[in-house]
């Protein structure tokens, strides 16, 4: 259970490094949006607050997932803190898992505080309780799952690539993953067999993140179907497990000069 200690320490690091300060910026933006939009878009406030709030949650979360995700391992190597950990009775796999869970916890706290802020903004804008205020929570949960996948991918890249390249690769994976349905369509319609094969391989290999984005539908009053919620959770767990297993496999074989 040493990964629990490592996870707790990773979470503590992000708190002490003032990562959660992004929440202050987020809340300020949301307050301004709620007040300003309420005046200029009468009748549309709730929709816009949900849309803008959840989109901002994605952007802020993505920045944390990519940049902190990359630093999880590279910082420990560069700052030479890894030598101290590996000399102790800790498996490399426990280290990777602990680091990953620590950042997942940071993202969870971030997502929960942001969702609470959006709920409060809606309460203010709608002048009372409304079903939309709870319906945004499953959507926020899906966004958190999406960020967990991105974090795992960032961690995987950082196990063998430089931070700059890893950031680029992770961002590309996120973007392609978000447009995975277009990639599937392209795979079906491309004229060249090689392109078709490559697109299909990429479609299956890269995470299908399109299903995790339910922001628009939520803003228009839909609720996330439970089948989608369960299916996406299972998909995220399996995908993350596979990516982390690959990261561990690479990290186990790596020499630190």
């Amino acid at each position: 259970m040493k990964f629990v200690h490592i996870a707790r320490n990773t979470f503590r690091e992000s708190v002490r490094d003032r990562v959660l300060y992004n929440l202050v910026v987020f809340v300020l933006l949301l307050v301004v949006a709620a007040v300003v939009i309420g005046r200029i878009a009468v009748g549309q406030e709730a929709k816009i607050i949900v849309d803008a709030g959840l989109s901002a949650m994605t952007v802020f979360g993505l920045l944390i997932a990519i940049f902190l995700g990359l630093g999880l391992v590279t910082k420990e190597i560069e700052k030479r803190t890894l030598a101290n950990i590996l000399s102790k009775p800790v498996r490399r796999a426990e280290f990777i898992l602990g680091k990953y869970l620590g950042l997942s916890l940071t993202l969870l706290v971030n997502a929960v505080v942001m969702a609470v802020a959006i709920t409060l903004a809606l309460l203010y804008a709608q002048g009372g309780a409304d079903s939309l205020q709870w319906r945004l929570w499953p959507t926020a949960f899906l966004l958190w799952l999406e960020l967990l996948i991105v974090t795992a991918v960032a961690l995987l890249f950082s196990c063998f690539s430089s931070p700059a390249l890893s950031a680029l690769f992770t961002l590309l994976v996120f973007l392609i993953g978000r447009w995975s349905l277009d990639l599937k369509l392209f795979a079906e319609t491309a004229s060249s067999p090689a392109t078709r094969w490559l697109s299909r391989a990429l479609y299956h290999l890269l995470p299908n993140l399109a299903n995790f984005n339910f922001i628009n539908q939520t803003a228009y009053g839909q609720v996330v179907p439970w089948q989608l919620l369960v299916g996406n959770t299972a998909y995220a767990v399996c995908y993350i497990a596979a990516v982390l297993a690959a990261a561990v496999l690479i990290f186990e074989r790596r020499d630190f000069k």
Binding site: L82, A83, L86, S87, D255, F256, K257
Partner: peptide, 8 residues
Amino acid sequence: KILMRMQR
């Protein structure tokens, strides 16, 4: 480094 598992 070898003794401390940083390298093989």
